[in-house]
Deep mutational scan, measured.
Amino acid sequence: KHCVKCNKAITSGGITYQDQPWHADCFVCVTCSKKLAGQRFTAVEDQYYCVDCYKN
């Protein structure tokens, strides 16, 4: 599998969101770069925000 963000191979520790593979380090808030894996977040038009950034 290849990460949908960076297009590099996922060798271990990847996550899946909406049936797409991601590196955990690539699945981050677009505003603050906080890792979103296992966290609550909001998706708006294929942009992902942590709860704090989305509220602001």
Rank of each mutant, 00 (worst) to 15 (best):
K1Y: 02
H2T: 05
H2C: 03
H2Q: 06
H2M: 15
H2G: 06
C3I: 00
C3H: 01
C3A: 00
C3M: 01
C3P: 00
C3S: 01
C3Y: 02
V4C: 08
V4T: 03
V4N: 12
K5Q: 14
K5P: 02
K5T: 12
K5G: 15
K5M: 15
C6A: 04
C6V: 02
C6G: 04
C6R: 02
C6T: 03
N7Q: 14
N7T: 15
N7W: 15
N7L: 14
N7M: 15
N7V: 13
K8T: 06
K8P: 01
K8Q: 14
K8V: 14
A9I: 15
A9K: 12
A9N: 15
A9M: 13
A9S: 12
A9R: 12
A9V: 14
A9F: 02
A9G: 11
A9H: 06
I10R: 02
I10W: 07
I10P: 04
I10V: 06
I10S: 02
I10Q: 04
I10E: 01
I10G: 01
I10A: 03
I10T: 06
I10L: 09
T11Y: 09
T11K: 03
T11S: 06
S12E: 06
S12H: 09
S12V: 11
S12M: 14
S12I: 14
S12C: 03
S12F: 03
G13Y: 04
G13P: 04
G13I: 07
G13H: 08
G14P: 06
G14C: 12
G14Q: 10
T16Q: 08
T16P: 01
T16Y: 02
T16A: 07
Y17W: 06
Y17L: 07
Q18L: 08
Q18I: 06
Q18Y: 08
Q18E: 14
Q18C: 13
D19Q: 11
D19L: 07
D19V: 03
D19G: 12
D19Y: 12
D19K: 13
Q20M: 14
Q20P: 03
Q20D: 04
Q20T: 12
Q20E: 10
Q20K: 11
P21L: 05
P21Q: 14
P21S: 09
P21H: 05
W22I: 05
W22G: 05
W22H: 15
W22F: 12
H23M: 01
H23K: 01
H23T: 00
A24Y: 15
A24T: 01
A24I: 14
A24W: 05
D25P: 04
D25V: 05
D25E: 14
C26K: 01
C26Y: 00
C26G: 01
C26A: 00
F27N: 01
F27A: 08
F27M: 10
F27Y: 12
V28Q: 14
V28K: 13
C29N: 00
C29W: 00
C29T: 01
V30F: 11
V30G: 08
V30Q: 04
T31C: 09
T31H: 05
T31G: 10
T31Y: 15
T31F: 13
T31D: 09
T31P: 04
C32F: 00
C32M: 01
C32V: 00
C32N: 00
C32A: 00
C32H: 02
C32P: 00
S33F: 02
S33K: 05
S33T: 10
S33H: 03
S33I: 02
K34Q: 05
K34V: 07
K34H: 08
K34G: 07
K34A: 11
K34Y: 04
K34C: 04
K35L: 13
K35R: 14
K35I: 09
K35A: 13
K35T: 07
L36M: 14
L36V: 07
L36A: 06
L36R: 03
A37K: 13
A37N: 13
A37T: 11
A37M: 06
A37E: 10
A37V: 08
G38P: 12
G38Q: 09
G38N: 09
G38W: 05
G38L: 07
G38I: 08
Q39H: 09
Q39V: 10
Q39L: 11
Q39N: 09
Q39M: 10
Q39P: 10
R40A: 11
R40E: 13
R40D: 08
R40P: 07
F41T: 14
F41E: 14
F41L: 12
F41H: 13
T42S: 11
A43C: 15
A43H: 10
A43P: 06
A43L: 07
V44S: 11
V44N: 03
V44P: 10
V44K: 13
V44L: 11
V44T: 07
E45W: 05
E45M: 13
E45Q: 06
E45K: 10
E45F: 05
E45H: 13
D46V: 03
D46G: 14
D46H: 05
D46K: 14
D46I: 06
D46E: 04
Q47C: 12
Q47N: 15
Q47A: 10
Q47T: 03
Y48R: 08
Y48P: 09
Y48K: 05
Y49S: 10
Y49M: 13
Y49H: 15
Y49C: 02
Y49W: 11
Y49P: 03
Y49L: 05
C50S: 01
C50K: 02
C50F: 00
C50V: 00
V51K: 15
V51L: 10
V51S: 08
V51I: 11
V51F: 10
D52C: 07
D52S: 07
D52F: 11
D52W: 06
D52N: 11
D52R: 07
C53F: 03
C53M: 00
C53D: 04
C53Q: 02
C53K: 03
Y54V: 06
Y54H: 09
Y54L: 04
Y54T: 07
Y54E: 12
Y54G: 12
K55G: 15
N56A: 02
N56R: 15
